[in-house]
Simulated scan of single mutants.
Amino acid sequence: MKQYVFIALFTATLTLVLAWAIWRISLKYKLYPGIRERDVHKTPTPRLGGIAMYLGVVAAFAVSAAHPFFSIIWTDPQQPLAILGATSLIVIVGVADDLLDLDWMIKLGAQFLAAGIIAWFGELQIYALPIGGMTVWSGWVSFLLTVFSIVIVMNAVNFIDGLDGLVGGVALIANVIFFAYSYLLVRDTGASTYFTLASFIAAVLIGACVGFLPMNWSPAKLFMGDGGALMLGLLMAVSAIAITGQLDPAIIGDNDAFGRSQLLGAFIPIILPVVIVFLPLLDFGLAVIRRMRAGKSPFAPDRKHLHHRMLDLGHSDRDAVLIFYAWTAIVGLSVLLMYIGTGQDWPGEYLAGVVFGVVGIAACLVVTLLPPTPARSESSAPEHTPQEAS
């Protein structure tokens, strides 16, 4: 565990230092776009924070090559190099969009290319679904399922990049929960080492988010932009595929560590990676439906995302962000607790997860739908609310 703590702290420290430096350089050379018609913030703010996060991630991978605990990553360098190559591509295109506002077709093409690099050259694909021994029946099906899954998660994370600290905080909470899950899963399956590529990526992303949030908390000095949000989505999808999509279904179906609830133990490896990005996926789905019904591109920007609706209900920007944090934590922790309960001879931990989830979701619904302040119009949105990226 201490090795994971080290890599997270290293990434966080480097990301924070680089974010501050990029903020100063951006202000000095005016490396920020003007206010666009769809933007709701009124002060031009640099959007290059994704560069700091990217460099922190790259440095963490470099350190892993020299660290004995993580050196197993580089036994076959094809996977880490593919991950770094795809990440570099998506950050370059994202930063170009943050500065030049690229056409959505260019961004989408780059996303598919990056996902293809992961699936084809990195050979990180969804080979199996841990349900009753189910495997993906075709190499091309596995490839396409992997590529579309990565692209969907990338866009889902990017779509919620609309309030100061929102994406960074949600990704931080999601990766903490996913790290705990992947760590426990490896323990329960009786592996000889607690190290996995999924746990490593989650630890690195935890560090990148912790390092960036001080610069992004309301009022934000620096936005992560498309470069940062797309990178987070890409690596979160890759970490989930690295452990869930390649997990032998027989390990879960036959392992006594999952106790009485064999069915739940089989489904959670699929459920939890989806649950931790539940809000981004929900927002993404609603946005696609809304825009296509209006005869627009599913990637045409608008101001009708979930966080915008919360502002219009009367929540302040900070309150809305904290409520998103609560939703992510409640839903993710509930499933994690239920997973922990599957390894017990009595249902106490499982029931604790169910009760925690029901009570927590009920509380979140009340807070979300009954804000403490009167509803306000769009024109009164906070000055520092970031641009709608997608």
Rank of each mutant, 00 (worst) to 15 (best):
Y4I: 07
T11R: 01
A12H: 01
T15S: 04
L16Y: 11
L18T: 01
W23A: 13
K30Q: 15
K30C: 09
L31T: 00
D39M: 05
P46W: 01
A52V: 02
L55M: 07
V63A: 09
H67K: 00
F69Q: 04
Q78L: 14
P80Q: 12
P80S: 10
T87M: 11
I92E: 00
G94V: 06
V95Q: 02
D101H: 13
D103A: 13
K107F: 09
G109E: 06
A110H: 05
A110S: 15
Q111W: 02
A114E: 11
G116C: 13
A119H: 12
F121D: 12
G122L: 13
L124I: 15
L129R: 01
M134R: 05
W137N: 14
W137L: 15
S138W: 07
V141G: 15
L144R: 04
S149I: 05
A156Q: 10
A156F: 08
N158Y: 08
I160S: 10
I160P: 10
D164Y: 00
V167F: 04
I177E: 06
F178E: 07
S182Q: 12
Y183D: 14
G190T: 06
S199W: 01
V204P: 02
G211W: 01
P214V: 07
M215R: 01
N216D: 03
S218K: 11
P219C: 05
L222V: 04
M224N: 03
M224I: 09
G228C: 03
M231E: 03
L232P: 06
L232H: 07
A240T: 11
I241C: 08
T244F: 03
P249I: 10
A250K: 12
I251L: 13
F258N: 08
L264W: 11
P269R: 02
P269F: 01
I271A: 11
V275C: 07
V277P: 02
V277I: 14
F278A: 15
L279Y: 08
F284W: 14
L286C: 11
R290W: 05
R291Y: 12
R291F: 12
G295M: 02
P298E: 05
A300M: 09
P301A: 11
H307R: 04
H308E: 06
R309H: 13
D312W: 03
G314V: 04
G314E: 02
R318K: 14
L322V: 13
T328W: 03
L333S: 14
L337S: 12
I340F: 11
Q344S: 15
Q344P: 02
W346H: 13
C364W: 01
C364H: 02
L365Y: 03
V366T: 05
V367W: 12
T368S: 15
L369D: 00
L370F: 13
S380Y: 04
E383P: 02
P386L: 08
A389D: 15
